[in-house]
Amino acid sequence: MNKTITAEAQIASNIVSAKISARKVNVFYGDTHAIKDVSIEILDRSVTAFIGPSGCGKSTFLRCLNRMNDTIDICRVEGTIELDGHDIYDASVDPVQLRARVGMVFQKPNPFPKSIYDNIAYGPKIHGLAQSKADLDGIVESALRRAALWEEVKDRLAAPGTGLSGGQQQRLCIARAIATAPEVLLMDEPCSALDPIATAQVEELIDELRKSYSVVIVTHSMQQAARVSQKTAFFHLGLMLEYDDTSKIFTNPDHEKTQAYITGRFG
């Protein structure tokens, strides 16, 4: 299994270029220094996993990538983060538009208390992606298909999204994020509230999404990181200690802390 991942990772690293590059990023919550000097190149059309013990800052860093931290009053971000070579913290960038390009899926499924259809159509409507009702129907269907949910819900698109099972809700949220046609998909522990079967479905989906998007996933499950990602970054106490091919991190990490964490000696 390791061999296939290595092969895949190599193929991936050959054809892809850096989608997001962050340099010397520091994040402060009031007086707390949450992220310290993190620099990272996130590749296009691949899955990058952030791992590390709780409170190490991986979710905080993830939320910097679509400026969701802006919604927190006391949060302050320093350094540069570039998406396709443009600084996303530049004054000319509208964070609202940025979030349409960098989609996000949260830890707990959070469907809106609306119908399944309206959940998906929400983003496209806001951004004016559909010219007609038929257009919108098409976007909804393709988003649901890509999220592998279409077959399960096609007969009840008018039913409330909150009535689905946990795994279906999470796939609905992924479909919702896909529907706005983002370039990057951020996932903050997308499977932590799901059972093993739903987790397997979502992981399969992530692997599928890699063909069109750059996916960044925060996870607490080492196995999950190993299964779905090509690159892995290890965070510890606000520092990014190591960033490399997933196969390398899980077989022969450079840093002893990484070694200790992936073998379960702390975390």
Binding site: N66, M68, A100, R101, N110, Y122, G123, I126, A177, T180
Partner: peptide, 21 residues
């Protein structure tokens, strides 16, 4: 829940759209 607010903002909605919709 805050999650709904975040969900809407993360889809690129403004605060006003989030409140309204």
């Amino acid at each position: 829940p805050r999650a709904l607010r975040d969900g809407s903002l993360a889809l690129g909605a403004t605060r006003g759209e989030t409140v309204r919709k």
